[in-house]
């Protein structure tokens, strides 16, 4: 199987703090990988390095064989990398539908010249994006709140909007940063189902999550991180059962 995302020898330090220490990681199409580890292990930092929030010191990141490291954040996204954020980062002044409509990989409406010279083309693309957004909202059971400002939703719904917005990219690789933190009830089921469906479509998915049950139910594999290093990779049940890792996790 050709991996979608390939990370090799990734290093990053902020002064004396090492957040990534020679990380090697591959993500394969159709597979959901859970990233687990204690707070400060470097899980979110790894997402930030992959998506380009800050540059890496050394190492390579490849998406479908193409180098991502060194590219600006928006370039990486336009090559088919999508992510969500631990702290949501929705656009509060936009409705749920408009939050999604900013998300497609190609967005002609952000070019003034294009708007002036090819208004029909932009309109056609907008219409397509709207149909796609409505479909994603349907899948995430958010159709009823499409016109509501994102800021007015419950926390669980906002988490779903974050994931729905990321789905608009039709990404090859999807990074979900704590999609379940603070989410209960119905949103839990929907989240599981949506992520599963996305993976079945051939997307490589990586999830950072502290909710062990969620990881166990959802992920094909787990990766255990500690102090910026990948310590183990394997079935989630095995990682949870490993007394050495449990000790690191709970810091006893």
């Amino acid at each position: 199987m050709t991996p979608v995302l390939e990370i090799a020898g990734l290093d990053k330090r902020f002064g004396g703090i090492v957040v990534a220490d020679g990380i090697d990681l591959t993500l394969n199409p159709g597979r959901v990988v859970g990233l687990i580890g204690p707070n400060g292990a470097g899980k979110t930092s790894l997402f930030n390095l992959i998506s380009g929030v800050f540059p890496s010191d050394a190492g390579t990141i490849r998406l479908d064989g193409q180098r991502l490291d060194g590219l600006a954040m928006h370039r990486r996204a336009s090559l088919g990398l999508a992510r969500t954020w631990q702290n949501l980062r929705l656009f509060p002044s936009l409705s749920v539908l408009d939050n999604l409509m900013v998300g497609p990989r190609r967005y002609l409406g952000d070019r003034l010249l294009r708007l002036a010279l090819d208004p029909a083309g932009v309109r056609a693309q907008e219409a397509g994006t709207r149909r796609r957004a409505e479909e994603v909202l349907e899948r995430t059971r958010l159709s009823g709140v499409a016109a509501t400002p994102a800021a007015d939703l419950t926390f669980g719904q906002q988490k779903l909007v974050g994931v729905a917005r990321a789905l608009m990219n039709d990404a090859r690789c999807l990074l979900l940063d704590e999609p379940m933190a603070g989410v209960e009830g119905q949103a839990y089921e929907i989240m599981q189902q949506v992520v599963r469906e996305v993976a079945e479509g051939g997307v490589a998915v990586c999830v950072v999550e502290h909710n062990v049950a969620f990881i166990r139910d959802l992920c094909d594999e787990g990766v255990f991180m500690f102090a910026g290093k990948v310590l183990a990779r394997g079935p989630v049940a095995d990682l949870i059962a490993d007394p050495r890792l449990t000790e690191l996790y709970f810091g006893t």
């Binding site: 600006a72 954040m73 996204a77 954020w85 002044s93 936009l94 939050n99 900013v102 952000d110 708007l115």
Partner: peptide, 21 residues
Amino acid sequence: PYGRALSAMRDDETAFAGLGR
């Protein structure tokens, strides 16, 4: 669509760039 994008950019530039804009 340009105004929508500007609005999103004002709200959260990092998330905006993370979407490929």
